[in-house]
Design a protein around this nucleic acid. Structure first.
Lengths: 182, 182
DNA sequence: AAGATATGTCAACATGACTGACATAAATTT
DNA sequence: AAATTTATGTCAGTCATGTTGACATATCTT
């Protein structure tokens, strides 16, 4: 049936790269690279299935998530966090507004701003999706002690770029280095 | 300037959900959910930038990666791993074949099969991308002790679905439970 | 009053998914 | 040997989500 050569690792990689730059094949972290790929694939897969029932995609989930988690988020903030263009955001945001998952409120100080808030309907969706993902996370953390959990958190944080952090990342990392007091 | 309400967490979420199912908002792992989002975004971002120089996208990277790592992978295996349709795979695979990053060899036992192998050119690309990602991983693991690293590995493994594992996952997890001896 | 900023929108396009239908060669079953 | 199944490839059309560029409007700042 599956009579394929499935010995792990490339067949003698160093001997084949006749013209390749031979870049430190030994110390590459293939293990973590692949684990991250599969873990993230299944992690987002949980939400993907549920989203189909709503006629939404991942893009809608991301918007709903951050609007729910950071109430009063401005459109510009959302663009920073998601790193997409306003045209892309506009499409999904319009749908979420039209279908009553999100509401806009004009900014108090700056009336140009549209502050975004999740409606109860939106909250329910976000909570449902986060519940599925939390189930997976809780399962995965079950047999890991507090020190291990701390290491996981530290690792994930250290994987994130800290240059030019957006408002959400500032909140997550508690960047108190902007406007120290004043 | 940014005079937005940025207090963490939704404003009293339980009081707003008049009609929502109020699903255990307390114990949701928002922290890990968001860390995974940002960590994965920046993790794949490393490769994305480099891929632009080659005129390739993420799809090409995934194919190259697994073909390099598991030499002699069949097309069908690749479809299982990537969980895409053969039409989608066909497009990127054709490009990679045409441009000399991958070669096909007819299966020895089953001449219908096309076994896939990375060329030196393909190996160089994969190694370059894996190098970038390894740099980030190594940096993130720098201050974590061996027990912590073990916990991270255990966590990522436990995040992955084990029902119906593909050939790559079997290799990663060393599933010796199929055809125990016989 | 002039300029900058925050947001929205129209139009065109690219990538990478998808479905459905169909073709070919080779293996397997009857 | 013939029929069926399997592994792969391909054509054609669609969808979701990203992109660029141009432009409009309201509002804040200078």
């Amino acid at each position: 049936m599956t009579d394929i050569n499935f010995s792990r690792g490339p067949t003698n990689p160093d001997s084949q790269g006749a013209t390749s730059p031979a870049p430190r094949l030994a110390e590459l972290r293939w293990d973590i690279i692949e684990l991250l790929f599969f873990a993230y694939r299944d992690f987002v897969g949980d939400a993907d299935h549920e989203l189909e029932a709503f006629g939404f995609g991942r893009a809608h989930h991301r918007v709903m998530h951050f609007v729910y988690r950071y109430p009063g988020l401005k459109v510009a903030d959302l663009l920073d966090v998601l790193r997409i263009t306003k045209q892309s955001l506009g499409r999904v945001l319009k749908q979420l507004l039209d279908e009553g998952y999100i509401v806009q409120k004009t900014g108090n100080n700056d009336r140009r701003q549209r502050l975004l808030y999740a409606t109860p309907k939106g909250e329910a969706l976000v909570a449902k999706l986060a519940g599925l993902q939390t189930d997976r996370i809780t399962r995965a953390l079950r047999d890991i002690n507090p020190e291990g959990v701390a290491a996981i958190s530290q690792f994930l944080r250290a994987m994130i770029d800290r240059d030019d952090p957006d408002k959400v990342l500032e909140a997550i990392f508690g960047t108190g280095s902007k406007k120290p007091r004043e």
